[in-house]
Design a protein around this nucleic acid. Structure first.
Lengths: 115, 115
DNA sequence: TAAGTATATAACTAACTACTTATATATTCA
DNA sequence: TGAATATATAAGTAGTTAGTTATATACTTA
């Protein structure tokens, strides 16, 4: 991947957003798997509006994109962002979120009946 | 350099500190050149205590180290920090602080007489 | 169309943060 | 030793932030 050179301003905005543990974890999860809000809700001890607000901030800076699919809105990393190269370098220092993803897939909140 | 894997907690602390424009600039300068407070003071429109407090936070997390030399205390990056590998990856996305370093060297605050 | 589910937005608040000014401490040097 | 310089610490404050609860909007399905 190409290493982009950023202005201090842009970079510090990115770093400030990632400086929150919840958002950093969300982003790490989204690196491995797109998720909707109700899935993320399974792995954070936090209200739904709180998760939505974090996602909003990440979206406002262009780090994530959203796609509505039925009643769910799926969030994923926006690889076309100018900030993506730096973001990816950072994420490569972090552990895989395998436990949290298992937790999501076990609880399977987007499946409403067992039929 | 070895890529270290960090806990989300540690990483988010680092990113939060770097999420401030002043601190990110200080760190970028220190990557190129050790500096004392009075030198940094030349390039920020900010009080001396403010600079000292930023340096304190960076030191508390182990990102910079200090060395007293006479009446000056020189700050530099702490390459032995567990966080250094991530820090360095981040700094590699940022522009060189050549202008600010010129400014420091031109004003030359640690030289008190011309003799 | 009505009820249920998913998500977003609004309004509020407690805690935190980045500054400021005032002052203390440490060093140098005449 | 006393004045000047460099830095740190303390205390106060305005602005920001991350959460909350309440409510609105959007979609699905019976």
């Amino acid at each position: 991947m190409q290493k982009t050179e950023l202005e201090i301003n842009q970079a510090s905005q990115l770093l400030k957003l990632l400086g929150d543990k919840t958002r950093l974890t969300i982003i790490s999860i989204l690196k491995q798997r797109e998720c909707c809000v109700c899935e993320l809700l399974e792995v954070f001890d936090m209200s739904q509006p709180s998760i939505s607000q974090h996602l909003r901030k990440l979206k406002d800076l262009g780090l994530v994109k959203e796609e509505r699919r039925g009643q769910w809105i799926y969030y994923s990393l926006n690889a076309t962002s100018e900030l993506f190269s730096l973001l990816d370098d950072i994420l490569n220092h972090l552990p895989e979120q395998t436990e949290k993803i298992k937790q999501i897939e076990k609880s399977n909140p987007t499946l409403r009946c067992g039929c």
